[in-house]
Each structure stands twice: as C-alpha cells, then as structure tokens.
Design a protein around this nucleic acid. Structure first.
Lengths: 235, 235
DNA sequence: CGTTCCAATATCGTATGCAAGTATGTCGAA
DNA sequence: TTCGACATACTTGCATACGATATTGGAACG
C-alpha cells in the first residue's frame, strides 16, 4: 500500500492542527509548547513546528519569547478588551456592507443556522458555543471581502482564548434572539440599524461573558507585584 | 572590539528587512523571492528566510505558492478594494476611540506632524508620502489599543503595495487639510464627526490615488484574455 | 542552614544536506 | 516545422546536526 504521504504541504497541516488545538482549548492558554515533543507528536521535525509557531505568533495565538520557546498566548485583560473593541469595529463593517446587499439565499442560510442554534441552545452543549461563533464567520464570509473574513476569523480565534481565561464557565455567549434581529435588519437593508445591532450584540457578549479574572500563568508575572510590595528585588 | 554578534534574533531582522524592502518598493510587487539568493544577500541561511516568508505571507505582503516559492504579493484590484474597505472600518474605530479622550500633548504632536507634512508637500518629495502614512499610524498608536495599531499598520503596508501597482505616479495621497479637520474634531470630542471625516478622507484617498490599472505580473494572467480572443486553449 | 557557583540537562537558534518537485533545453518522431 | 519525451539544472520541502542559551539539581562554601 504505497500510501501517498502528503500531496500538500505538511507545514500547513501542522499550522492548522495547532491552530485548532488552541481554539478548541485542547492546548490551554499559557501552556508551554516545546518544539521537540510537539514535532514528535505530529510526526514532523522541529523545523515545521517552528514555522507554524511563527505564523501563529503573528495571529496572536502563540507567544514567542527568545530562547525560552513558545507557549499558547495568554492575553491580559487589557489585550482582551482591545480584541473585543477591534472585533466590534470589524463586524460593524460586516453588517454595513451586507445590509441590503444580502441575497434571499443567504438570508435563508442564516436563518437555518440560527434555527440550529436554537436547538443546540436547549441542550446547552458545547455545540452552542461553536455555532454562535460560526454565525459571525458566516456573516463575514458573505461580504465577499476576503481580508475582512480573515480579520474576523482572527479576532474570533482570539476571543476563544480570551473566553477560556476570563469567561464564566459556559454561559452561551451569543443571544440567539439578537442574531435574529440582525438578520431582519440586514434583509431590510437598514445599514445603520444593522451596524448598531451588531455593536450592541458584541458589547453584550463582553458584559455577559467577560468579567471574571482568572489565574495568571507565568510565575514571574504573578509574583512580581508581591516581590515589589515586600521590597524584594526581582533579578 | 568584541562586537557583540547578535543582539537579538536574526530571524526577526530578516523579517524586518524584507518587510521594509517591500514597503519601500525596493522589492516590487510580483517580484520573485528565491530563498538562497536572499539568504546569501542578508548573510543568513535559507531557514531564516523561509521563516520570514511565512510571517510575511500571513500579513499579506508575500505570496507563497507550493513548490514554486515566494514572491512579493501582487494584490488584484478586488483585493485592493477589500483592503481599503477594511482600513476604513479600522480607522473609523481609531477616530471614535480617540475623540474626546485625546490629550493636549497628543494634539500638539499631531499638529507638529501636520506642519511637517505641509512643508514637505511644497517640495513634493517622497517625504510627503511617508509622512501622510505616518500620520495615520500615529493616530492608531494613540488609541493605546495594540491590536488596532497592528491592524492599521498591516493595512497601511498593504496599501503601499497597492499604490505601487495601481496608484498614479505621485499624487500625494492625503490632503493635509483633511488631517487638520480631523484633529479639530478629535479635540472637540465629536466622535461621530471624527469618524465621518476619517471615512471620507480614506474614501478620497482611494478615488484620488487608486484608479489606474497597471501591468499584470503573472504572464499567465496577462495572456489569458489574448489566448481566448484568438481561440487558443490555455492548458 | 542558607547562599553561590557549577555541572548536567533540556531547549532553542541556525546552518547544512538530501530528496523531491519544477522549469528549461535538446533531440527525435511525425 | 511542430509536438512531445527525456535529460539537466535549479529551487523548494523537510530533516538532521551542532553550537548557543536557559533551567535544574546539587556540591562546596560561608
């Protein structure tokens, strides 16, 4: 069985694997990412793992400290707010550029999606979370603006990280009713209202989910303030 | 003179060098980027060049085709519009979050900057272009939102590429007067007006600078229409 | 008993090597 | 003369190798 190994670049596969693992929180924020063990696990050399790290670092999913290796990014609360703010700006643009220009077929697709969300919401599984996220990706995708889609995806990924750290256990983040309202505004072609709805929707997500500070991950950072308050001198 | 060899990672230096070279159009859009000649030129191995390519690809400054290497990105006209649209959304956010919260010191800095722009505008050197760009970066920086800054920088870089391809020779892209108005609105704390000014300003940049389709870079794309019109069949 | 220094170990940063894939040039057959 | 198959040179994809840097566990010393 000459299993054709990989028709396409394995570097890409590594990148995607790590990306998914981080987003799905199999790799938790702050977790150390040694090149060797990861490469071994994925069946590739450090070279490819390293390449993937570089790209993930640009996207803000991985932190890269010189000579100290990579770890899953652990955004500060401040960075978290930054991400949500940018995301709001981006998605408002999504809403505006979609309003009125959305096709009936697209509306139908969105409504089907929301319907799924409602069903998943009852059982309150992890499905609910995934679906809420996908709704926003779907919207971004419908704009036909590839860059906008990329940025929304990126922001969305980072939000996963952020919610893993600062989010309350599993309050499903998006209110389905808000999704429905948004669809209505888009179909009606009311750009201003759609943008406002999106804006409020995302603000609501922040206040609903993002309030509880959790543990810190790097011992140094945790202890630095204590050291100072005790007059100790961090080397 | 024990010249300390590498103060910081050389990979980073390679990345920055290439980035600058692309933005300053020393490396022109579409130009092929062979790993070994570039590595040789910069005094590093292909490994580092390759790593830099990966990161630049994420940022959209280089295109990476499997087994065919890297080249400086050559955005299509459609991608160009996408970039400008996203940039508008981002910078509107900049304007909004800065309005009213901007400090007198920051206003002073911006005014000094605009003054420089005016002086440079008279002599109409390449300085003029650089300064216009920096004005927007400065604004983004003042928001204190690191992610927003990163995205604006990225969008800005890509705009350089785009103007290199589709821009008219050297119409300085930004009208200085528009910058002044914007500063006024920011100081007055009129968020809506600031956002609108920014929006119009960037729309104006597009219509001023971005109209002339130029040459295509990939021979295939250039010739495809000719082939069709002659009844030839592109393999 | 606590502190300093040093070796051992685990990683990282980078260069190089080899296999595989792509482009190009040549030559023979139709 | 045109087309296509093969051969060659070049480039990329990936792994491995080796020196450099950080971290850990003592041992020596105060």
């Amino acid at each position: 069985m000459g299993e054709k190994r990989t028709p396409v670049l394995r570097a890409e596969s590594v990148y995607r694997a790590l990306r998914r693992a981080i987003i799905e929180q199999a790799l938790k924020p702050g977790m150390k990412l040694p090149e060797d063990s990861i490469g071994e696990q994925l069946g590739v050399s450090r070279t490819l793992v390293r390449e993937a790290f570089g790209r993930l670092a640009v996207e803000g999913l991985v932190e890269l400290k010189p000579n100290r290796g990579a770890s899953v990014a652990y955004p500060t609360l401040e960075e978290a707010r930054d991400v949500f703010e940018v995301r709001r700006g981006l998605e408002r643009l999504v809403a505006e550029s979609l309003a009125g220009r959305i096709t009936p077929a697209q509306v139908a697709e969105l409504e089907a999606h929301v319907h799924q969300e409602e069903k998943a919401h009852e059982q309150d599984g992890p499905e609910s979370i995934r679906l809420s996220g996908e709704f926003h990706i779907k919207l971004a995708n419908m704009t036909g603006n590839a860059l906008l889609l990329r940025y929304v995806q990126e922001a969305s990924s980072r939000c996963s990280l952020i919610l893993a750290i600062y989010g309350r256990p599993h309050s499903s983040e998006c209110a389905v009713s808000e999704h429905r309202q948004l669809i209505d505004a888009l179909r009606a072609g009311d750009a201003a209202r759609a943008a406002d709805l999106m804006d409020h929707h995302l603000r609501a997500v922040v206040t609903r989910a993002l309030l509880t500070p959790r543990v810190e991950r790097d011992i140094r950072d945790v202890l630095a303030p204590y050291a100072l308050s005790e007059g100790l001198t961090p080397s």
